[in-house]
């Protein structure tokens, strides 16, 4: 549930930042940017014919066949919430439900006429409300920590994937426009925070460092991984075999790798390698948690 919502929020931000950016770009730059967004989805869309802005908007908002579209994410999150309805608070449920109905109600034909910026803004606000209700109305026990894990695995993986599609440019192998860097930071909610840290000077090194290694910004990869580590250690120990320890070790290793790297090292040894590593480890953690806590074989828990 938390993963889906985090994903929906990511898609929302990605669209919002890029739609605004593309208004001012030249056609070839728009095309490049569209290709980049498409790649950053993890599973690129197979759109027929040429990529166009309205087609991409439509797919990422309304197409239930696209796994990362807002509608799919919200629908899946609501399905998950229904299954654990008794675990979550009524306030959380009603926010999520309201979001679901809001997204369903929106008329796809409106896209022809105007940009969905207001719509995206409303989705973002709704998700924030849900997160606020989660923190304020649910006990911060095991269930809450699971939500945190989902959110931060997804966030770390999203930031990593987005950085990856910009890797060539950030390593200086290709040109990148100022506006595109702006959109990258905006997509990670990091624009104003970046300015506060590094002022309005945009350098590839600083951007990579900020999004990958900043210890304080909630959308940096290091931040997410450390929250993840913290959340995992709050989970109960299932058996004496140390399943939790296994997951903890995965998270701890990734956190330590990031914590003790410098941006120069990462850039010189290949940014995409580091990012691939982050993405792979996130997937590993996901399945390790799944195995340890949900899909565990019955023997492991009885033999203790």
């Amino acid at each position: 549930m938390a993963r889906y919502l985090e994903r929906a929020e990511h898609t929302t931000r990605l669209l919002d930042a890029n739609i605004q950016l593309m208004l001012e770009q030249k056609p070839q730059a728009v095309e490049r940017q569209l290709r980049r967004i498409n790649l950053s989805l993890g599973e690129p869309l197979k759109l027929e014919g040429k990529l166009s802005v309205p087609a991409l908007e439509h797919a990422l908002i309304f197409d239930p066949r696209v796994k990362t579209s807002i509608i799919s994410c919200v629908m899946n999150a609501r399905e998950n919430a229904r299954q654990v309805r008794e675990q979550i608070s009524s306030e959380m449920w009603s926010e999520l439900n309201a979001l679901y109905h809001f997204v369903k109600r929106y008329d796809a034909d409106d896209l022809e006429q105007q940009l969905p910026l207001e719509f995206l803004n409303e989705v973002r606000r709704n998700i924030s409300l849900f997160k606020g209700e989660t923190d304020a109305t649910m006990s911060h026990g095991e269930e809450w920590w699971f939500l945190q894990i989902g959110r931060h695995i997804e966030r770390a993986a999203n930031t990593a994937t987005l950085l990856k599609v910009h890797a060539a440019e950030l390593c200086g192998e290709a040109d990148i426009e100022h506006l595109e860097l702006l959109a990258l930071l905006r997509s990670c909610n990091a624009f104003e925070a970046y300015l506060k840290k590094n002022t309005a000077e945009f350098s590839a090194d600083n951007i990579v460092e900020f999004l990958l290694l900043n210890p304080q910004h909630p959308h940096s990869i290091l931040f997410s991984v450390r929250r993840l580590e913290e959340s995992i250690s709050a989970l109960p120990e299932m058996s004496s075999r140390g399943e939790r320890g296994k997951v903890e070790r995965l998270a701890g290793r990734l956190a330590a790798t990031l914590l003790y790297s410098s941006v120069e090292e990462i850039l010189s040894s290949g940014l995409h390698l580091s990012l691939d590593n982050v993405i792979r480890q996130c997937a590993q953690m996901h399945s390790a948690i799944h195995q340890a806590y949900i899909d565990y074989p019955i023997e492991t828990s009885l033999s203790a």
Partner: peptide, 19 residues
């Protein structure tokens, strides 16, 4: 947004950085 896109407006977003 639509007219904006059609008109080909030159960006001014770089002002703070230029300042």
């Amino acid at each position: 947004p639509k007219v904006f896109r059609q008109s080909g407006v030159l960006p001014i977003e770089g002002y703070p950085q230029a300042l």
